[in-house]
Amino acid sequence: MFAWAGEGGMPSTEVRPGDNAARSAPDGEPRGGLGVAVWATLKRDLTLLMRRRSEVLNPLVFFALVITLFPIGISPDPELLATIAPGLLWVAALLAALLSLDSLFRSDYEDGSLEQLLLTPQPLAMLGLAKVAVHWLLTGLPLALMAPVLGIMLALPAGSYLILAVSLALGTASLSLIGAIGAALTVGLSRGGVLLSLLVLPLYIPVLIFGAGAVQAAIMGDGASAHLAILGALLALSLMLAPWAIAASLRISING
């Protein structure tokens, strides 16, 4: 039985054209609207990813596998491993984060949610930022938490675990933001994966240099705070610029 079939069951579709316009009057602009929309986007994306666990686990498994294979492939010599560990951990984490980027906007593009996202009266940059935040929470943050454990396998000196995790947490946030620009630009292409890597990798290099540098400095006994400060500055810069670049890239992709 369909309630939809009769006039009686039909919901009120009364329209007051002035309604929405009145709400957007300069003085009466409800700021709550944006907060609600951003919160709902966060919640929706978190729920979606928690229901597709394999997508969340994929980069983490990749990270663990790569780091496990290096001691086997190179040499189990702890001194040698300790020298290359900061770079190895950072490169592997960077590639793992890159792997997961392609799917950031892909499924929304395919099922039509993305065009709905572009047609909301809410600022697209903020909604895009919410999606990136979820990506970092479920990719960057777990990678940062996992890295010290894998560091043990590479004989990373004990004092540098905290710096490793902090540098990765800061760095992967920048990586997610920068990568999302590339993901937004290539979302309309059927095989955008390679192009995405080519676009994004050059921009990842400063983050890699200072991230791995921070861990190296911690091992050497120099203070890592300068490196961490630069990572923080890179993050602040990406936070300022990336949301607008993501919004513009999404518009270009949908236009094509």
Binding site: V36, L117, T120
Partner: peptide
């Protein structure tokens, strides 16, 4: 719920 929130209404 998502569409309701995107429209600026409290869900």
């Amino acid at each position: 719920a998502w569409y309701q929130a995107l429209a600026g209404e409290s869900p």
